[in-house]
Design a binder for these strands. Sequence first.
DNA 1: CGAGCCGTTGAAACTAGTCAATTATTGTGG
DNA 2: CCACAATAATTGACTAGTTTCAACGGCTCG
Lengths: 211, 211
Amino acid sequence: MQTAASITLNSRISAPPRARSQAHIRPVIFHAPDCVIYAQGERTRSLYQIEYGAVRIYRLLADGRRQIVAFHLVGETFGFEINDTHSFYAEAMVNTGLISIERDAGGQLNDRLVGVALKAMVRAQEHLLVVGRQSSLEKIAVFLVDLADREGGADVIDLPMSRIDIGDYLGLTIETVSRTISKLRDMGIVRLRNARSIEIVKPEKLRMLSN
Amino acid sequence: MQTAASITLNSRISAPPRARSQAHIRPVIFHAPDCVIYAQGERTRSLYQIEYGAVRIYRLLADGRRQIVAFHLVGETFGFEINDTHSFYAEAMVNTGLISIERDAGGQLNDRLVGVALKAMVRAQEHLLVVGRQSSLEKIAVFLVDLADREGGADVIDLPMSRIDIGDYLGLTIETVSRTISKLRDMGIVRLRNARSIEIVKPEKLRMLSN
DNA sequence: CGAGCCGTTGAAACTAGTCAATTATTGTGG
DNA sequence: CCACAATAATTGACTAGTTTCAACGGCTCG
């Protein structure tokens, strides 16, 4: 159960990882769930590193549907754009603390920025392989394995996102997402501690499905 | 109808566009249809610019399926990778002439390389939006509109790829690709001069579908 | 405690996939 | 140049899987 946001915020602000050798400490900016971090069309200000929480990156399609192109978790950096204009939305999914990473003075691409861009590209390409797959079982399996790895490789996955988010990420409806997770449960591969906490009982079988 | 490859090759080799101010002229390397330009796992040698022809970029999945992540047409540059190892295959789809673009001496990222990388990233993200769509009609519509734009905006699209390629690109079977194109024909939106040449009769309707 | 949202489950409708047969196109050898 | 073979594309019938519509259960927050 989550405690009050301000407590979490304050407990972290004094010890940011990857602290630069600069005089001032970068402030942690707090975002409540569903709070917009930046919007499509907005001018790019900086990159963001997640201190705690989780973020979804998405685009709204003309017909109102939403395609989530990426989830970002603790420790990850996001916010890279080609132009100086954001072509995606970024929203906090849970209580989230961010530190912003400024560009160079001249607005030039520095090594860090390029690194983030490349990682984003790899993610997008990998995600393409997943979304292009046929079966919902494969999609969900890949999704869970990826999330487990990124959360530190533990057996228990803490989902920061709703079923709607997962559906918009994988190109499925919430019903199919739910049914597929239920199927994995019935197959004895996962166990649901609650809707947002999934225990992987048989990791090797899950990986087989996500092959 | 295509003439002998060598003739096409020779007719182009003397006038490469974007010629650098260097002493020697870069040779145009010829590739026959289905010829591998580079393979997954191979060491990255250079970037490639398409003088004539068309190229598919794809990855083979563990179960033998093939996900095409990009098509490249005349004038476009491809071959960028994060590591010095290719994580995708590149194959010519028709008779194709390439000129190679070397990296800097130190293997550093130069502006050109970064530009290609960014364009590839944008493409991957855009493609994600397409593949994540539900209906085959939308996918095919987006595909055709994109191709028409990239071929110069004319009403007649020359498809350098097979139905299998299109299917592997959009996450559809060849039958569905064929049926969907036939449906567009029955709707009076396109006309098939032959299987590889599609005339867009009602561009505005096609764009509406691809919205 | 009740309202509201999130998630699950069921049944029907529909879309895309699979299997199979037919037609069109391309290439090869006589 | 034509006949034939091989490949590519289309179409049909059927099946499987996902979406849609709907109802219900459970958790959270006022």
